[in-house]
Nucleic acid binder design. Structure first.
Lengths: 206, 206
DNA sequence: CCGGGAGCGTATGTATACATGTTGCTCTTT
DNA sequence: AAAGAGCAACATGTATACATACGCTCCCGG
């Protein structure tokens, strides 16, 4: 069964990473409980989960605030993502079996389609799917977990960056290239391209 | 203030990583509440936090079980640790300032002392301190958080491996060597030695 | 003898009421 | 007028009572 706590957790997480909750704003338990038609208990559970994921921080008076990412934090997220995804890619190169690559191929095909339609939301969703699948191919469950947590920050960083049509097509091309290197089991080349790719999608350093 | 939930969380975490709670065993909320002289509410909070840290898994009937690490999981933890600590070390090399290294030096000195006394528990505690300090020098808070979470697994893996006196002194020497390379800001050499060091303390692959 | 379904028991999910602690404001005193 | 102490209000921490869902057992039918 899907509990209320699960539902509230998921809804709030989406709100936060989509930028619908302002960074630094406080979340009031009773207010949220009223909004979701639930009691404080499941709301509290959802908040604590978000806290341990790093999306909420404790403010004064123990209140929960939406995390406010500094410039250095955003840079850190990019570095960590590069480190972890590179590890995943190396493993994926060594371990993939034929069926594993289907999900990746489908993601890229769909990406091309939505990029032509100019659907940015769908595109970013598929982008996440691609990287998640790549981690799944590595068959490292703990790493997948860590990347999912990091993924929330990645999305939080990205909502601030407008994505145009040309950029979307370029990213789809890069995914195609990554897939190609993965198929050839060329781990060094894959890691190098993956690093460039991740740095490309990162915020420009000012 | 230190809440009951904090206390229970901490106590249970120590129990688990020290091997005092058998892997796979179930944790009963009411039983724990009675044991800690609290109600189910703070116990539940502690359990959910441990769950999101990956130390507890949901079993049948939504019961919480101590995680049961497979051989491949243990190997994965080592790989991830190497990946993340290497990233931290590279940053630490570039960014350390004189005062930053004091904590590391002290940790190694103390390690030598307790190694002579044969105090394995104290030694492993200082070992953890050393690696935690190294991450702190890199000034990457999110990475430190991830490494703390991984640290729980590392300890959980290590309790199963007996550590003898000769091994302790060898590890202290390796830490000394790492510190040396860090001081010379030689990132590639530091990362290479760190990788070897981490693989040394990992369980032998059978 | 085997298979399926209904009913019960138990542990978790949720709601609500109460306790506690922190914060900011006010009142008093120097 | 400034500073400190105390108080009041509000949000979170905790306890407890109730709801629910899942699993297990037992019984009945084939």
């Amino acid at each position: 069964m899907r509990t209320k706590a699960d539902h509230i957790h998921h809804a709030l997480r989406e709100d936060i990473v989509a930028g619908r909750r302002e960074q630094g704003s406080v979340l009031d338990e009773v207010e949220l409980a009223a909004a979701f038609g639930a009691s404080r208990t499941p709301v509290r559970e959802a908040l604590r989960r978000l806290q341990s994921e790093g999306l909420l921080t404790v403010g004064s008076r123990r209140r929960m605030c939406v995390v406010d990412l500094s410039e250095s934090h955003r840079h850190e997220v990019t570095l960590l993502r590069e480190s972890l995804e590179t590890t995943a890619a190396t493993q994926a190169c060594a371990r993939w079996e034929p069926d594993d690559l289907d999900g990746l191929r489908v993601a890229v095909l769909r990406q091309r389609r939505v990029a032509r339609d100019g659907d940015v939301t769908a595109f970013l969703g598929l982008d996440e799917t691609f990287h998640r699948e790549l981690a799944a191919v590595a068959r490292m469950p703990t790493l997948s977990l860590l990347l999912d947590q990091l993924g929330a920050f990645v999305r939080l960083v990205r909502v601030a960056i407008p994505t145009d049509d040309a950029h979307m097509l370029a990213l789809a091309d890069e995914h195609d290239d990554l897939l190609d290197r993965l198929e050839r089991r060329d781990a060094p080349a894959l890691c190098a391209a993956l690093g460039r790719h991740i740095r490309t999608t990162a915020p420009r350093r000012r």
